[in-house]
Computed example of a mutant assay.
Amino acid sequence: MAQARVVRFYLDPPLKRSAERGQHNFLTLVAETLIEAGFRVAYHRDSAEEREKSRGRNGFALFHMAPPTTQRGVTIRRAYHYPFWAIEPQAERWHWHVARSRFNPETLDPALAKRFTEFWRKRLFAGWQARDDGFVYVPLQGRLADHRAFQTCSPIAMLNEVLARDPRPVVATLHPGETYSVAELSALQALVDAHPRLTLASGQMDRFLPACSCVVTQNSSAAFNGYFFEKPTVLFAQVDFHHIAGSVPRDGVDAAFAARKAPLPAYACYLWWYWQHMSINAGHPSAKVRIAQALRRAGWPM
């Protein structure tokens, strides 16, 4: 059966109001692109009730940072910082188009990439000065004792690997937005007690990221930010920005750690490629073209 040319946006209440009033730059561009392609746009709350209804509704669906409920659905999510966005048929970043694409710096203009990266570094990280104070920065996320499907080991086991493989001081930071159990905090404290060169802190990315020698994490966005400061990175989980990092899921733990000592990758070219070529820059004249391309990739009849 042919699908109705209607796209329903499922959004939390503040975002829904902003989109309906045309006050959200990216969602307004998405709506305009769809309307110009002959679709009608409708707005719904992203509630459990509406998500259940979405499964049986005709037409197409768009969700914000949530898995689509139908094969005719997509999710939208920031590509780490405004105004860069992704539109994907799956919510998991490691399944995104950019994650499966090949990065080839030899095809890019390094001077253009350098100007682009310097502009965004100054805009996003004003006052942050890159240096090397000789320590490993390990930004932790949540569920420290769990080994989830997209990870190669639990975060606690990852921290043990770092301590076993790198003799430098290690600073592990708790995510300020996470709530940790007594058992998780006790396991971390046991590591601190066993390893005097391990320090535990909370947040403070602005303090630790510019000053570290390298970043080791599951898939924290802090590692993506570290590319602006040319910080070698080891990733223990699947993610979309793995291309220039040492990736344990892709290469194994030995090769991933060895990559820290390789010549520095083309960080500026990568950031230009990831944001300006593979993402949707909502502030760029190409935004609607990129939106239509992403929806076509998802199988929508644009």
Score class of each variant (00 low, 15 high):
Q3L: 14
R5I: 05
Y10R: 08
P13A: 11
R21L: 15
G22Q: 10
N25F: 04
N25C: 03
G38C: 10
D46G: 01
A48I: 10
E52D: 11
S54T: 07
G56P: 07
F63N: 03
H64W: 15
A66R: 07
A66G: 00
P67G: 01
T70A: 07
R72M: 05
A86I: 13
E92N: 01
E92L: 13
W96Y: 12
K114E: 12
T117R: 03
T117K: 00
F119C: 02
F125S: 07
G127Y: 11
W128I: 04
D133Q: 15
V138R: 06
C153P: 01
L159T: 03
E161G: 01
D166Y: 06
T173H: 08
L174W: 12
Y180G: 08
A183M: 03
S186I: 05
S186L: 03
A190G: 09
V192M: 05
P196S: 13
R197W: 12
L200D: 08
D206V: 09
R207H: 12
F208D: 00
A211T: 06
A211L: 13
N225G: 13
Y227R: 12
F229H: 06
K231M: 09
K231I: 13
A237N: 04
F241Q: 04
H242A: 14
H243N: 07
I244C: 08
G246K: 05
D251W: 04
P265I: 03
A268G: 02
W273F: 04
A282Y: 06
G283D: 14
G283R: 08
V289Q: 15
A294S: 15
A294C: 14
R296L: 13
R296T: 13
A298R: 08
W300T: 02
